[in-house]
Every structure is written in structure tokens, then in C-alpha cells.
Write a protein that binds this DNA or RNA. Sequence first.
DNA 1: TCGGATCCGATTGTTAACAATATCAGGTTA
DNA 2: TAACCTGATATTGTTAACAATCGGATCCGA
Lengths: 242, 242
Amino acid sequence: MAPYTDQQAGEQGVTLADRVFTRLRNAIVEGEIPAGSKISEPELATEYGISRGPLRDAMGRLEACHLVERRANVGARVVSLSQEDLLELYILREALEGMAARLAAERITEKELEHLRRLLKQHEQRGELQEGIAYFQKEGDLDFHFRIVQASGNQRLVQLLCNDLYHLMRMYRYQFGMASARALIAFREHGHIVEAIADRDPEMAELIMRRHIRSSRVNVEMLFDAQDSLTRRSDPDLSEAG
Amino acid sequence: MAPYTDQQAGEQGVTLADRVFTRLRNAIVEGEIPAGSKISEPELATEYGISRGPLRDAMGRLEACHLVERRANVGARVVSLSQEDLLELYILREALEGMAARLAAERITEKELEHLRRLLKQHEQRGELQEGIAYFQKEGDLDFHFRIVQASGNQRLVQLLCNDLYHLMRMYRYQFGMASARALIAFREHGHIVEAIADRDPEMAELIMRRHIRSSRVNVEMLFDAQDSLTRRSDPDLSEAG
DNA sequence: TCGGATCCGATTGTTAACAATATCAGGTTA
DNA sequence: TAACCTGATATTGTTAACAATCGGATCCGA
């Protein structure tokens, strides 16, 4: 099971709200509940076979994760992901994961290091890289980043990145499909990051990690720009006021 | 009113849970409800004159802010702040606010810049710095950092720092007092940060901001170490197994 | 025909009662 | 005496009904 699905994932959560929260989160992240769609409390409640109480609780947590947006007396909608927000997210990751890499270089254990190396080897052997598509879509990339963050030893960093932001990133990947020729490059950069961490070189680890994430962002930015100019050419309505 | 108390603060929130959430948050942050104390739902509900529904909603949001910790079927306690956690928080701030300063240097407006300068002048004239105590305790420091983050233009950064982390920082200040001879030094560093931002020098802005926050952390770290060695000397029980 | 007020329906927010779980006291047994 | 089991109590989790608010359709007037 992917490491970012947290401990209570296996439907084994203690409380109804817990379980429904996890299920709803997956449903939203994987697009089963479409982005931007309105959420009806009674509807969902009957669908999941619970009453509105725990459902509202779960909704509150989803709101805290920024997966749904609520307005009082109006209702909740699944968040609709914007390109700008994704770019903002990359900025955050650059800062946070850069720091995580720095910390990891300072205090990673040999065991964790071995784990990282094995993960990279798995990615390599799986032969997904040549095809280019799979590395991002199957979340091997996120797995790697996740482990670095964990190795930082900063619980708050782990908490923040793994409980909130990563689910959002996953959602973006499901929505936008993020296949890219960068897969192979990204994989190589992962190797460099592990090297720097293994060398116990915090400055270098942070530098490479930041550059790595920044490159991903620029890549996505270019993709968006290309898409935009395409749609603008084929849909003249969108270029000026509709 | 301090800028980090958000828009719905004036008891004017739309829903009961909103208002109770804000009131509870203040009560916790300012120590009115002591850190580490257990929270009884029926008790608080009657105290605030509402029923347990909206109260539980508010508790959920407090949990999302990391101001309370809940365990299923057991209950909620106000978070008890540890020294380690505060240091972790500083690490996070170093990364995030460093990035915020960088972004601010890139895209701050003249108006915001003027705001910043005026804020510093106010702090200077208020004569609090000489006494050393007030700058941190009265949250002039946090006000400054808050504005930088807002000037970054990254909504997610703003969100994260201003809705969650800053309330925690406030709580630490109320709890630990944080008076320090660093007040004057910190004030000067704020000046340097504004200069770098005004020069539109992102690298420098990030560098100084990170060094600034790092210095605060180191300062706190030393305070803690001093306290620890003191208590350990006077309370021999604590040095080894109780 | 267009703009605005009004009513209706549906949805959300809130409440109070019910069920399930954990804590703690007391008793029992080795 | 100490460990364990057992039951009472209080707290939390859950439910279903009630109240308040919003959005949209309809009707009216200019």
C-alpha cells in the first residue's frame, strides 16, 4: 500500500466519521466524485449508509485538507483545481521539501537511506521510465518525496506534507494526467538527491531538491501555457469577454 | 485588531460553530483554557450556551489547527506545547517565510511596501524596544512577519501561515513569555529585510529572513538549554528515572 | 420585455435523545 | 499484597427530528 495512505486507511478506522473521511478523500482525489461538483449531505449520507452527523464531521476534515470548500447555509463543493493553485503548491513544496532534504541529510539513518536506494532501484527496474508516462501517474515520484520528508525527522513537516498537501498533489495528477518526458530526468534528479543526502551534505541536498521541484513547476507551467494558447486559438470566445 | 485574527472574528461569524471556534481558539491561545487540560464537551457546550453539535464542529477545526488533540472515544485535550515542537515550528517558518520574503521581493506593491515601513516606524516610536519585553509579547513581531507573508501573493502560503501556524506561535508566546534581549536585534533585522525587499532582491530577502528566523530559534534553544540545566540542578528527580 | 419583489422548496445548521465505548472503583482470587 | 476481572458511571459517537437560511421559480409592475 502506498505510504501516504495513513495508518487508519484499511477501513479499520475507529469511528464512522474516520472511515467515511478516508473513503471520501480517496473518492475525491481519484476523481470518482468530480472536481467542482456540489455535495449534498443527505445524498452522500444515505449513499454511505450513515447519518448526517458523522458525514458533516468528515466534510469538516475534508475542508481542512482543502479538498472541499464550504459556504455557510449554502453547501459544499469539491474544490476545483486551478492552474495557479498548482503552481502555488509547487512553490510551497520547493520551500518545504528543500528544508526536508536539508534535514534528512543531517539526520537520516542508514536504514532509511537503504530504503531510499531500494525504492529508486525498484523504479528503475520496473521499466516504467522509458515509457515516460507511468512514473508520475503511478505516484512513484510522490512515494520518493514522501520518504525524504519522513527522513527529515521533523514531525510537523511530515504532518503537513503527508496529510494535506500530498493528497492535493495526487488529485492534481489524477485530474491533469501529468505524463511528461521529464520522467526520466526526474528519476535521475532523484538519484542526485539521494547522493547528496548520503554524503551528509545538507546545503547540496536542499539545493538539488529545490531545483528539482522548481523544474517540475516550470515544466508544468510550460504545459499550461501551451494548452492555453491552443484552446485560445480554437475557442476564440475565450480570448476576450465571452 | 491584530491582522491575523481573521475576517469573521468580531463575533459576527455566520454560524454558531464559527463563532464558538473563534472564541475557543482565542481562549486556548491566550491560556484562558490551560494547555494540556481535558475538554469536556457537555461542560463547554453549556458554558457557551450551545449544544454539542456545533461545539464538536468547532473542536474539529481546532484539531485541524493543532490546538487540540482528540482520541476517539476518549476525548480532547488542549495541546501541550513542547520545546521540541516549538523548534520544529521555527524550522517550518524558516523555510516558508524565507520563501515568502523571496516572493515578496519579486512582487510587492509600493503600497504594501509603504505599509511595512510605517509598521516598523510604529514599532520604533512605541518605545517598546528599549524595554526589550514588549516587542515579542505584544506580537508586533508577528504582525511584521504576517505582512511579509501577505505580500508574497501566494494564497496558499498566506493560508497556511496565517490560519494555522501563527495561532500556534501566539500560543507559545503567551505560554513561554519570550521576552528577550533579542528584541532590539530582531527589530533591526526586520529593517534589513524590508530593505532587501524594497531593493527587489529576492535572494537577499530570503537569505536574511531565514537567518533572522534561525537566530530566533537558536536564541530560544539556548534559553531552553539554560532552563533545563537549571531545573535539572534544583530538581534532581528529573535528571534520571523519576 | 425586463427588472424586481415574493413565495416555495430544498438544503443546511442546530438540537436533544439514544447507543456504544472507555475510565475508574470495588471486589475477588492467586 | 498484587494482579485481574467485573460492573457502574460518565463521556463520546451517532441518530433523527426541528429550525433557520438560501436559491430559484413565479408573479407583478413599469
